[in-house]
Each structure stands twice: as C-alpha cells, then as structure tokens.
Design a protein around this nucleic acid. Structure first.
Lengths: 231, 231
DNA sequence: ATAAGTATCTTGGTACGCCATAATACGGCT
DNA sequence: AGCCGTATTATGGCGTACCAAGATACTTAT
C-alpha cells in the first residue's frame, strides 16, 4: 500500500479532461450558481455557440445533466433547467439527514481522533468564511466538511448520492446560509456533531447530523414557500 | 383538481418513447441481466450495429449509463461494463438499509391500513413466484414491494435513489434470492416489516427493514467473496 | 376580428468525415 | 534470431451537414 501511494504520487497529472467533461462542468456550474435559472430553456444550438463546442457534445452534456436531475426534458419542446418543487426539496433534505446521520454515527464508532480533528479544521474554515462574508467559501467548506465525514469511513457511494442530491438544491443552500443567525447556528450545530464524534457517541452524532440538516431544511422550506408567489 | 384528474384520465397514452430511451432501456437491460458481463468492452460502432441506431444515440446512452454507474469509461480505451467491487456493494446495501428503513418507519407512522394491505399483496406475489421458481418474478415483485413502501408516503426521490443503486447490484440480487432458504427467510423478514407497519410501530418497521437488507447484504458478500477467485 | 394556413424554431435522429491515440502487426537491421 | 522502429488498424473524440416532425408564432384572407 505504501508502494501504491508512492506510485500514485509519481503519476503524471495529465489534464486528460475531455472536451465533453469540460463542457459538462461549465454547464452544471452555470446552472448551480444561477446563470441559468430554473425553467430557462436550454436551446442546443445556443449552447453550442456559448460553449464553442459541437451539438454532439452539447447533447451528451444535456443527457448527463438530465440523469442528474438538474435538467428536465419536456417532450417535443426540449430541455429546460429543472424546477425544484417544495416537496422534492424536503425529500432531499430528508435523505441527506439519513445518510449524513449514518456517516456521523460511523465516524463516532470509529474512535479515531483524527476524524474529529479534520472536521474541526473544516469547521474553522466555515467560521472564517462566514466572518469574511464569503458565501461561496461557506458552501465549499461545508461541502468539504461532509466529504470528510463520508470519506473518513470510506463511504464514497453515499457521498456520491449526497453530492448528487445537493447540487439540485444548491440555490436553496445559498439562500439558507444567508439567513439571519445561520452564521452562528449552523457552525454550532456542526460542532455538536464533531463533539459527539469525539466522544464516540454514535447515536448522538446521528441525531446531531439529523438536526443540522433538519434545521437547514426548515429554513429552505420557509424560503421556498415565501418565494413561490414571486416565481 | 377533479378537473385535472379527468383531463389526465382522458389524455391519450402515446408511446412517446424516443428512440434514445428505447435504446437506453435495451442496453441497461442487457447489462442488468448479464448479456453484457462486467468488464466487457462496449464498442460504440458495434452497439450501433446491434441496436440499429446511430452513433449519436449510442453515445448518449453510454453517457447516461455512465452517470448511473453501470458503465465505466477508461481513458483512451473507452466504455466497459462497470465492475462491482465488494466494498461498493456493501455500501449500496447499507444505503438501501437506511432509506428503506426510513420509508418503513414513515409507513408505520402514517397509520393507514391500506399500506399494509398493499404490501401484503406484493408479498404474496413474491411467495407465489418463489413457489413457481420464477426468479425474475421474485425480483420484479420485490421491487414492487419496495416501490409501494416509498410511494405510499410520497418519497419518490428516495425511491429513485434506491432504484438507481439497485440496478448496480442486480446480478448479486439474482444470486442471493437463489440461496438456500432465502425463499422462506426473505418473505418472513418482509412480513415482519409489514406487521410492524400494521401495528404502527415505527422503530420496529425501521429495524425490520434494516435487518432484511442486512441479511441480503451478508449473503451477497459471501457470494461475491467466494466468486472473487473465479473472476 | 377570427380562422386557417404558413413560416420558423427546435429537437430527434441519421450519416459521414476527420483527427488522435493505443495496440498490434510487420518488416528491416544488427 | 532477436530487437527496434514503422505502418496499419481499431476506436473514441469531435465536428458538420442534413432531414423529419412537432410546436409556435405570424400572416393573410375572408
């Protein structure tokens, strides 16, 4: 295994990114950070022009995003940015609660102090970003917090699921974290998770993770139902 | 709303299936039931010939399956049927346990007798299929059992996740159900789920669902690690 | 003013061609 | 005989052009 790591360290980091992957990331990012709004039509040829790639690529990208749930395809009308309804958002928060709770419990049961330390580090990054009012930073570090949670117990499949679901509610996330008090309450709740993990308290970690997602979900629900009249 | 339903009832059920969707289903099915084996190369131009569609379609299909995790893309070599390693399979069973447990708990808390009745119906179908040694039927009705579990509490997102993960372990499923005793033990465990739901026992339903998946996972693990030397 | 017909937009789908790269086969050189 | 460099092949990545059909917007004729 040491050999493996050494081999991996030496391996040349070639870009290897195919044009399609580049385009995929671009479009996904454009949707996630609101350049394309929910309901917007995604006209293939327009995207070709904007991305500077051929229709072949654009079509593959749209299919991919469709299967991720970020794009919906209206029959005979074409792809649009998927609309997020309240019920679906609540379900996504619920699933995240179940999986993040599971990961937190496993972390606690692992009994490895390095886990809590790594999480604390991410948590501090989050606090700093809040202080700097760097909202993209908050999101990125929150993501990294949870990635740590999953990867420390080798649950990359669950992490993949959470990640997949999370992009679909990304614009909600960016609204919840701007909520009054969230800059204090959020990190505090995450600290509870870390504490429980450090104590080796599995059920406590599970509950703390569930609570954190639940409160984020509640804020999102308020935001979304308040906004519904606007859309 | 009554008007809506009436309108929907009248609506002509057109096939509407696009060629791409047809091809997608065909290839997915071919992978799932073993026509293409894990590790097999999926040569685009060959698939074109076999499916009778253009390369554009084939590529879109491959991308879609790639994002489903059924197909892996080796850089500079092309797509192959994804290999399933033991760790990943265990993670998938674990996630299913968490989500199916959640759904079972929600069903129990719903307190609607119709739920248990519908589940019993699926369960009886499973028993019959076992008796007829109709293994594809067992799989189909098991799937329908769980679909009921999720749809009765309107958790179609979670159902989608479970479904997505399940196709990746489909060949494992078809091996576990053939295991000695599984024809008795499996339905018995599922009956425990239904009973707990009928009693309105949320935690009991959760635990019963977890147990069922866990035992399926254990069998799969045995099968997979025994088989590893063969592959 | 309205209904019918028409043009346009856009996707679904096909065919073909080009290039880059990896693997393999081949042929010449020592 | 064995090795090395080159030609060929297989295949994916990507682009372009084209057609059919459904949806929509627009005109026009009555």
């Amino acid at each position: 295994m040491n050999d493996d790591l050494r081999g991996a360290a030496i391996r040349v980091e070639r870009p290897a990114k195919t044009l399609r992957e580049l385009a995929l990331d671009k479009v996904r990012e454009a949707i996630v950070n609101g350049y394309f709004r929910p309901g917007d039509r995604l006209v293939e040829r327009d995207l070709c022009a904007q991305l500077g790639v051929s229709r072949t690529i654009v079509r593959e990208v749209l299919r991919h995003l469709e299967s991720e749930g970020l794009v919906a395809n209206l029959p005979n009308k074409g792809p649009i940015v998927a609309l997020l309804d309240l019920g679906e958002a609540k379900q996504i928060y619920e699933i995240r609660g179940a999986l993040e709770g599971m990961a937190a419990r496993l972390c606690a049961e692992q009994g490895n102090p390095a886990i809590a330390d790594a999480l604390d580090k991410s948590l501090q990054d989050i606090r700093n970003s809040y202080q700097d009012k760097d909202m993209p930073g908050v999101l990125a570090h929150t993501s990294s917090f949870y990635q740590t949670l999953f990867s420390m117990v080798d649950r990359h499949v669950a992490w993949g699921v959470v990640n997949l679901l999370t992009v679909r509610i990304n614009h909600l996330r960016s609204m919840t974290i701007k909520t009054e008090n969230r800059g204090v309450q959020g990190p505090a709740q995450m600290a509870r998770i870390v504490d429980a993990i450090r104590r080796g308290d599995g059920p406590g970690a599970y509950q703390a993770a569930m609570d954190h997602v639940a409160s984020a979900g509640a804020i999102a629900e308020a935001v979304l139902s308040g906004q519904q009249s606007i859309d």
